[in-house]
Amino acid sequence: MNANGMTLNQPVKLTRNQKFWLRVRRNWILHLMMALPMFYYVLFEALPLYGLQIAFRDYSAADGIFDSAWIGLKHYIEFFSDWEWKNIVSNTVAISFYQICAGFPIPIILALVIHINQKKFLKKLTQNVAYIPHFISVIVMVGMLNQIFHPQFGVLAAIYHELGIYTVPDIRYMDTTFRHLYVWSGVWQNMGWSTIIYVAALTGVSHELHEAAKIDGASRWKRVLSVDLPAIMPTISIMLIMRFGSIMSVGYEKVYLMQKSTNIEVSEVISTYVYKVGIAGGRQSFGTAIGLLNSAINSAMVILVNKIAGWLTDGEAGLF
């Protein structure tokens, strides 16, 4: 019997429509499962897109979305005619790339180190301790930075004092040190966390492959290169794609807390600008417009990197 309950003596042609609904009926539980999430997506992700049009309007709360004057690209013209815009965009891109280059390989290396090392106690201790910084909120993080690098009372100062030098530079607020402080403190805070995923992926690597490599006489190091790394490539590429997806989103909070008059030239990024001028500054549609620009660039990056990852690994990896 075929699915319609009819015997095969009579070949029945189903219309496309009937086929469609047949499949729906067969999978109805799965569709039901998707219903709630889809409802959420429509309501809270798709619907706000409708309100996105205030980026092209001169939004005033009194007039509401639809009656606010349509001004097209005026907000973008304003942004690009501000002489600061090049600075802002270049800061954002530079910091993002720096973050990825510094922050992405380190958890992988760390995971490999933990995986290779044989001392059980050390491994457990490190794994459990390395995650702690992730739980520290951003305000606390910046407060700690300020205290540790304090030119008179910080740890750095104590080291200088030991060496007999009492004129300690205040590296917390210099424009030459801002990016390094920002990125490496972020690495410090997040490396233990990302390591979880990689360590877990490494322990999942098939044991047979390791055995085979050992039989071939590979040293531990060679085994890492030839067995472990390729095995976690799919994980790595997914994580990388997701990182790129937020390339233009240098989060405003930490930057804002670390900004001072001495480093503002290198620390002003799109998100702080949007926040200060747009949201807090009461210019809601301007803020939305620039935020949209930010979002668009992020999307382009994600799509691009996803295509590259798919192309490099023959369709194996890739988010979608």
Binding site: Y41, E45, A46, P48, L49, Y50, G51, L52, I54, Y59, G245, I279, Q284, S285, G287, T288, G291, L292, S295, A296, N298, S299, V302, I303
Partner: peptide
Amino acid sequence: TMLVSAGMIP
């Protein structure tokens, strides 16, 4: 929806 986010005000 992951790629495009509308922002705080919308």
